[in-house]
Computed example of a mutant assay.
Amino acid sequence: MDAMKAKAIRYFLGESQEKFARRIGVATSTICAIEKGQRDITDYIRAKLVRIEASLSDEFLLFFEHFRNC
């Protein structure tokens, strides 16, 4: 799990940084810093993101490929 995939998950869900931060249980500033590459993803956050990703539809894979190539 890296910053780009974390951001792609948030975009796929259509959530603001604030709402996504609440979902994960961290501060909005933490999400912002991760997405900018200014902060590493902790094991706690990585575990939350992996669980969220596992619950997403297969469409996320296509979305992420496009997101990564933009």
Rank of each mutant, 00 (worst) to 15 (best):
F20I: 02
K48F: 02
G14Y: 11
Q17K: 14
R68S: 07
L49M: 03
K36A: 02
G25T: 12
G37P: 09
H66W: 01
A3L: 01
M4A: 08
V50Y: 06
I34Y: 03
I52D: 13
F12C: 12
I34H: 06
T30W: 10
E65D: 03
A6Y: 03
R46D: 14
E18P: 05
I9P: 04
L56P: 00
N69T: 06
L61R: 08
I31Y: 02
I24Q: 07
N69Y: 07
T28N: 15
Y11D: 15
E53A: 08
L62C: 07
A6H: 06
D43S: 11
A54E: 14
G37L: 03
A54L: 04
E59Q: 07
G14F: 08
K5Y: 00
T30G: 10
R10P: 11
C32M: 12
E59W: 02
E59V: 02
I9C: 03
I52H: 07
L13M: 15
T30P: 09
A3R: 09
V26P: 14
H66Y: 03
S29E: 14
L61A: 10
D43C: 05
E65Q: 04
I41N: 05
A3E: 14
A33L: 04
M4H: 04
E53Y: 00
R68D: 03
A3N: 15
K7V: 02
F67W: 06
R68M: 04
T42Q: 11
L13I: 13
F60T: 02
F12I: 08
Y44R: 09
M1H: 01
K36G: 01
E18Q: 07
I24L: 06
L61D: 10
A33S: 15
K36Y: 00
E59L: 01
N69G: 10
I45Y: 07
T30K: 14
R22P: 02
G37F: 05
D40W: 00
S55G: 13
F12T: 12
Q38Y: 13
V26M: 04
A8Q: 03
S55H: 09
E65H: 02
F64W: 01
S16T: 15
Q38S: 14
D43M: 09
T42C: 08
I41A: 01
V50N: 10
C32V: 03
T42R: 09
V50D: 05
F64H: 07
V26L: 00
H66P: 00
I41R: 06
